[in-house]
Structure formats: structure tokens, C-alpha cells
Design a binder for these strands. Structure first.
Lengths: 149, 149
DNA sequence: CTGTATCCTTAGGGATACTG
DNA sequence: CAGTATCCCTAAGGATACAG
């Protein structure tokens, strides 16, 4: 431990009840969404897999982020079983629901940030998800962008 | 100054060329997207307006984020003219393109984070944007989610 | 292989005072 | 009003060693 529940320093309660602010207290840091990228788009599930990403996250940071994501209900930790190597981390429904967020970030970055070169397997995986994503977006459009009622 | 160009510590170059990672080096912190929320959804333009948000950002942090957002082409700074009070910060096209990102974050948070209560004027402004947003999303769906070709 | 633990450094950040 | 400048402190993070 040693980390606060919320991300801004010196607080143990949310800064405000604004939904954007609340979301940032879950993933408003340089690492959390990279872990979710690995989980959602690269199919990673195990500690060592997350650790091996190109951005070279440190073990203590990774452990902290995994623990927080589990505590916040974004990932679910399944303990090791006999015959299997170790525990795995897999997205919950709340975690899967971050796919559209990552998608919009991806589109923004591809369009406006030079240097953008997705990691191996990334674009392929996203293409595979495309149909599901389009359906999800269409459904959201049909229902008039829920959540704003 | 005193802040590095990129957000993870001790680096002056991107961690990787992954679009998600690159985007996080622009807004992968607890404050930047709040500034953009204020600019895009609450119509704030001036230093004092950003300063007065419910989350109580400090002046040095705000100055740093505004400077970085300008440097990264997300905001544009227009100097004070005679007759007007002071400089204003307004979104560039790149900045406006963050609206869908914030929208997805909002939908995720409203759905999965308890406590979610948007600040005054927020929902109203988003409702006003709804038509434009739906059009934008529909267009994106029609063209098959560009950026992944 | 999956983490803890530890050491160390620094950037991030809160508070406040101050300046053009 | 729009920031700088300072002080001070802590959490975040990098590196490495080590334990079950």
C-alpha cells in the first residue's frame, strides 16, 4: 500500500462529484489506461505480460495499478489454480466499457499526434472489434446518447 | 518552467509511439482534462474562470497546464487587447476534437461511478451539443470508423 | 513467475505571497 | 486580473534486490 485511494495528493475523498473528475480519479495518470489498453486490445491477462509492454512500467507501479483497478471494479483478479501458472486479471463489464473511451483517444491521437504508430497486433485487434464497436455506437445513437437524460 | 515536456518523470521523449501512450503524454494526469472540460463544456476562456472550478486547481498547476496545452496545439492563447481585460485561451481544432473523448468518459462515469453529479451548466451545455454530437457519431459510423483503415 | 520491499530522486502539487 | 515566485511536502516513479 502506501498509495491514497484517490489520485490527487493529500486527499482521501473525491475532489468533486463531476463525472469527468471522478473518472480521472480512476485513470487520470500516465499508466492506468496503458494497462487497460493491454487488457482490452492486446488480450493481456498476466502480470508478466503487462510488464513486458514497450513503455517499461516498473513492477511496483504495475502492482499498484492492478490493485487499484481491481478495487475499483475495472479488473477482476482470478487466483492461480493448480495446473495454471499464476493469477490472471480480466476486464469486468465496467472495464469493457472503457473500450469506447480508448477508441476515441486512439482516433484523436492518430489524427493529431505525429509519431503515432500502434504496437504490433494493436490495429489488427481493433479491426476485429470494429463490427462490435459499430453496433455499440449505433445502439447508443439510436437510444439518443443515454446518460444525459 | 521546471516541468518536463513529457509526463512520466525523467524523460524528454515519448515512452513509445503507441497512439494511446502519446495521448496520455498530453493529458495523462489528473488536471489537464478538467481544464478541457471547462473550456469545451463550460465555455471558460480566462485564467480566473479556470481557477474558479470546484476542484480547486492551484495557480502554478493551472499556468503549467495552460502553457502545455498551448504548446501542444490544443489551446490557442490570444493576448489581451486594449479594451479587453486579459488574454484568453480557446480550443483549437485539435482541442475541439477532444469532445468525443470527454463524452465517452462522461458516459462511462455516469454509468459506473456512483456519486456522479455534473457541475451546474454542464448537462445543459451537453444537451445543447447533443444534436451535433449525434451527427458526428453517425458520420463516423457511416464512414466505418476512420483512422483504422 | 508474481509480486514485495527498499532505496532514492524528483516532479507534482498545495499554500501563500507577491508583481505588472 | 493574470499570472510568478517560493516554500515545503508528499506521492509517484525508477532501479534493483529479493521472497514465496
Amino acid at each position: 500500500m502506501g498509495y491514497a485511494d484517490y489520485m490527487g495528493h493529500k486527499r482521501d475523498h473525491p475532489r468533486s462529484t463531476c463525472p469527468i473528475s471522478l473518472a480521472l480519479e480512476v485513470f487520470g495518470d500516465p499508466w492506468t489506461l496503458l494497462v487497460m489498453r493491454d487488457a482490452l486490445y492486446l488480450g493481456k491477462r498476466r502480470f508478466g505480460e503487462f510488464l513486458s509492454s514497450g513503455e517499461k512500467i516498473a513492477t511496483n507501479i504495475l502492482a499498484n495499478r492492478l490493485e487499484r483497478l481491481v478495487r475499483r471494479g475495472v479488473l477482476r483478479r482470478k487466483p492461480a489454480e493448480q495446473g495454471r501458472e499464476g493469477p490472471i486479471y480480466e476486464p469486468t463489464e465496467k472495464g469493457l466499457a472503457l473500450i469506447p473511451v480508448l477508441m476515441e483517444i486512439l482516433l484523436w491521437s492518430e489524427r493529431y499526434e505525429r509519431l503515432s504508430v500502434p504496437p504490433p497486433g494493436f490495429v489488427r485487434r481493433i479491426r476485429a472489434d470494429r463490427e462490435g464497436l459499430i453496433k455499440l455506437v449505433q445502439k447508443r445513437v439510436r437510444s439518443g446518447l443515454p446518460g444525459l437524460g
